[in-house]
Computed example of a mutant assay.
Amino acid sequence: MTARTTFTPAPFPGRRSFPFIAWVRSRLLARWYDRHLQRRDLSEIDDHLLRDLGLTPEDVRRECAKSFWRA
């Protein structure tokens, strides 16, 4: 009869810890929220200030139509 041994896999050497993953996730969510706020603010700018920025109303509509995860 052969002896049974329990197999415990070795940890992955390049595996990141949970705090790192949580940090990356929080940064991504913060970036998305910031992008949402910037597009909302851009949509409220009047035509006079858009001309100063060199933007057209069509540029603003196109940018504001993007989803928050798209750059």
Rank of each mutant, 00 (worst) to 15 (best):
T6S: 07
R31Y: 03
H48T: 11
R40D: 13
L50M: 10
A22H: 02
R39G: 04
L42C: 06
D59E: 01
Y33V: 01
D41Q: 14
L55I: 08
L42K: 05
D34W: 04
S67W: 06
H48G: 13
F20A: 12
I45E: 00
D46V: 09
D46A: 14
R25L: 14
I45Q: 01
F68T: 09
M1G: 10
K66A: 04
G14Y: 02
F18H: 05
H36C: 12
T5W: 09
R70I: 00
S67D: 00
R16V: 13
F7R: 14
T8F: 05
R61D: 10
R31P: 01
D52I: 10
A22N: 05
E58D: 05
L50D: 01
R31K: 11
R15A: 10
E63H: 02
A10G: 02
W32C: 10
H48Q: 10
P57Q: 03
P19N: 09
V24S: 12
P9A: 15
G54E: 07
S43T: 08
T6Q: 04
R25F: 15
V60W: 01
P57N: 01
M1A: 14
T8W: 04
P11D: 15
L53M: 09
R39S: 00
R31L: 10
L50A: 05
P19R: 14
H36Y: 12
W23Q: 06
D41V: 06
F68A: 14
V24C: 11
A3D: 10
D52F: 06
R61V: 01
G14Q: 03
R40Q: 09
A22K: 11
H36M: 06
Y33M: 00
D41Y: 09
P9K: 11
L55S: 02
F18L: 14
S17D: 03
R70M: 05
A3T: 11
L37R: 15
R31H: 03
E44F: 09
P11W: 11
F68Q: 10
T8Y: 04
F7N: 07
D47L: 12
L49K: 08
S26C: 11
E63T: 06
S67K: 11
R51K: 12
H36Q: 13
H48D: 14
R31C: 03
L42A: 14
P11V: 15
R27D: 10
R15V: 01
C64V: 10
S17L: 09
E44L: 14
R40K: 12
L50T: 06
V24Q: 13
S26F: 07
A30T: 10
R16Y: 03
L28D: 15
H48S: 15
E44H: 03
W32K: 10
D46L: 05
R40I: 11
R27Q: 13
P13I: 07
P13H: 04
R51S: 13
D46M: 00
W69V: 03
W23M: 08
S17Q: 07
G14I: 01
A22P: 00
L29A: 15
S26Q: 13
F68P: 06
A30G: 04
Y33A: 15
A22R: 05
E44R: 07
W32E: 15
D52T: 08
V60S: 04
L53H: 02
S26K: 14
A71M: 06
T2M: 07
E58V: 02
L42Y: 04
W23Y: 08
P19F: 08
S43F: 09
